[in-house]
Design a protein around this nucleic acid. Structure first.
Lengths: 350, 350
DNA sequence: TCACAAGATTGGAACGTTACAGCTTTTGGC
DNA sequence: GCCAAAAGCTGTAACGTTCCAATCTTGTGA
């Protein structure tokens, strides 16, 4: 008998528990899962054995034989973006409340890593996928559809799965109308290329429509990648500088999300433009820091926790077959929160 | 033959691919894993079959037979806290780069959910666990040790696993010394109860020592739970108000982390105390928003990405048996970043 | 032409569970 | 006491892989 020197102690299995408690593995399994049909005395005996051995059921084996996992895949655009971070947290909590474990994958807005992430999720046989951002990539779509896994798009859009989101276009109108009513005639729309998706597009449309309804010209579209750290936002950004100095006299910017809005505000602060005196800024999301007295960002508040709750409920219902049929769309309210970053435009006495 | 009406189409298995390509499952397995010993022609044939069927290896089955997963558990204090969000993102990226998938669990600083989360991770047979926060709970420790899974504490502390962190005590001294050199004599130390851990304690100690070395009295310790949203920070908080008005004439606060520092700044803004004229504030972490011109928080910068990288490298090396032996501690540099929230104390002409 | 090595391919035994049918034992009504 | 029904318990066959020893092909040099 040669004993391996670094003998790896193995995790106790259901069989170890069974023999330790003097019952069959079936009985142990029933105890572990709290099924009826086990006498109180054996139940106790098994419980003791479990504690003594430190037995933990192997979820892998369980899921293999049941052919379904209790893992939810969550696709996030950027975990470090406060909006996603808040959503991720809510999603994780609601998932746990319904008995699911969340497995995140961060895409950085790149469809390559989105695809790779989704592929990993599928290989792990996730029970469902929650998209908190979706690039629109066709390969991702094909992979998910091929594997027939329930999908929900939360606060982002696609036409091949349930959608839970705010009415982005309405949000776009609300924010823009607020600007128009404050006397602004020329509005720019700012978005971050990495996060451009269907939601972003709907916001832009809403903005455009509102301007149009007011008989004003279409918004200028600006695409800007602020550096990952606000501290590195600098005054060298020509296209951005033109927003402030350009010939079209833009006096207000509607940013497609708060991170962009705050980065823009930072830019203004650095190059010496005043907000809101020189330029009004509206964001979207209402991330926690937008409410800081020093930031005071006017923005469209998304009910994050409700979005997360409805999203999880949606996939979970599909997974548990409580809901069948074609994709549904659920829209929740979006609210304008007025703060210091927007102000009535003082009209030139010209 | 009665065909179930809603016949669930099952995922193709390795056997389906095998018969489709006219080879044995072993060969398919070898192709999938890129092992040598398969002729180029069969390799191609198998590849085609895989594509046609949309076959994806079942990671569960693989991991069951290999008795090891490629999942890393990550325990996070609060995903919505920007410091953790940044760390989570880095950790996820470095894990993916080494071939691991991250599975997060959020503890909210409660040891109950920490325990539950770790229990879930262990049941999923994670290959290792990265703690980004640790409550110190003994049951968690016991569970992890019992299952003999490699563990690393990143930016938090414990004596039963590898540790990668900044020298918290040194950070505490650096920040405090900065205050002392600016003429402050009475310093308070502020921490958030949910995030109080070994790191927090070391920072406090560093603060205390620096004051002591300067011949000054010990810092007042304040424990404060700011509301989840900054927007709800209000002026009703008596204990906090006493920091500003109390008889001990506190002129500076060292917050154990940036979120607390920013919440305190917000509180000051709301009740009408000026930062830094009335009170200087130092934070810890250097979260992105600390660098905003409008926030300008003096703080101790943690090299987040390096922490994450070293942490992942640490667990991965343990998992892959490249490192054995007793726990190691790796300390990385912490840097004072001076911004607008601290200023030289104008001494009373009394 | 043959033996033999190297290369290519295969089948079966795990891995740790759950599901389910079947087997005991107990219970209770008459 | 007896019999049926209920309750308690067990054994076996999956689940979809990997691992490994065994077998089947080739190709090569003598």
């Amino acid at each position: 008998m040669i004993e391996s020197p670094s003998a790896e102690r193995r995790h106790p299995t259901i069989l170890d528990v069974a023999s330790h408690a003097g019952v069959s593995k079936s009985t142990v399994s029933n105890v572990v899962r709290g099924l009826p049909g086990v006498s109180e005395s054996t139940r106790r005996r098994v419980r003791t054995a479990i504690d003594q051995l430190g037995y933990r059921p192997n979820v892998l084996a369980r899921q293999l034989v049941q052919r379904r996992t209790s893992i939810l895949g969550v696709v996030v655009g950027d975990l470090a973006n406060p909006f996603f971070a808040e959503m991720a947290k809510s999603v994780e909590r609601h998932a746990a409340a319904r008995g699911y474990t969340a497995m995140f994958c961060n895409t950085e807005g790149e469809s390559e890593s989105e695809l790779a992430g989704v592929e990993t999720l599928l290989q792990h046989r996730v029970a469902g996928i929650v998209f908190l951002a979706f690039s629109g990539d066709a390969r991702t779509k094909q992979a998910v559809l091929q594997h027939q896994v329930p999908v929900v798009f939360v606060s982002c859009g696609a036409d091949w799965g349930d959608v839970v989101s705010v009415d982005d276009s309405r949000g776009g109108r609300l924010g823009t109308t607020h600007l128009v009513e404050s006397g602004h005639r020329r509005v720019a729309y700012l978005s971050i290329p990495e996060l451009e998706d269907q939601s972003d597009h709907a916001r832009w449309e809403g903005c455009r429509e509102a301007l149009n309804d007011a008989g004003l010209g279409a918004p200028t579209h600006i695409s800007w990648s602020p550096p990952a750290e606000y501290a590195r936002v600098d005054g060298l950004d020509r296209p951005l500088l033109e927003v402030f100095t350009g010939p079209d006299r833009t006096t207000a910017v509607f940013a497609s999300n708060d991170v962009a809005a705050i980065a823009l505000q930072e830019f203004a602060d650095r190059v010496g433009y005043r907000v809101p005196e020189d330029i009004s800024i509206v964001g979207f999301d209402d991330v926690p820091m937008a409410g800081l007295a020093r930031i005071g960002l006017t923005t469209l508040a998304q009910p994050r926790d409700e979005l997360a709750r409805l999203g999880i409920a949606g996939v979970a219902d599909r997974i548990e077959r409580k809901v069948k049929g074609p994709p549904r769309t659920t829209l929740v309210k979006v609210n304008l929160v007025t703060r210091r970053s927007t102000a009535r435009l003082e009209t030139d006495p010209s």
